[in-house]
């Protein structure tokens, strides 16, 4: 079995996969790892996520779910002093510079950031 939407070979109603893009899987796993490591509790996480998914601008079709997930994670990391907003922005920019500096087809590594 490779897809969660299939039980014992029977397709259930058409549905999108759990993760639409790889970054969503990674964002998901970050939260699991942090919670399992006791960096925050599941209640804290549920409260943070709830605050995001109840925003007025949340998409009706749920397509922005992992954007909410990321905002909730960043908020919690900042609250807990595990990351600062500026560090997150700086590191994101560094990854983007690294991507631009990486020849196409090669793995993107942070060390490729010319700004380092």
């Amino acid at each position: 079995m490779s897809q969660p939407e299939i039980v014992a070979g029977h397709p259930i109603e058409p549905d999108t996969p759990a993760f639409a893009e790889p970054w969503q899987a990674q964002a998901f796993a970050l939260v699991i790892a942090l919670a399992e490591g006791g960096k925050f509790s599941w209640n804290e996480w549920a409260a943070a996520l709830s605050q995001q998914v109840h925003r007025r601008d949340a998409a009706e079709d749920g397509s922005d779910y992992y954007h909410h997930w990321m905002r909730a994670l960043e908020t919690l990391l900042v609250e807990k002093g595990m990351a600062s907003p500026s560090a997150i922005e700086d590191m994101t920019a560094a990854w983007q510079r690294a991507a631009h500096a990486t020849p196409h087809g090669k793995p993107i590594e942070l060390a490729n950031d010319p700004g380092l």
Binding site: L30, A83, M91, H100
Partner: peptide, 22 residues
């Protein structure tokens, strides 16, 4: 993308940034 560089989607870059920091 151009011939010789890559683009990282903004959310993908953000997740990588968090992973690096953590």
């Amino acid at each position: 993308h151009h011939d010789h560089d890559n683009d990282l989607d903004p959310m993908a870059a953000r997740v990588r940034a968090l992973e690096t920091i953590l």
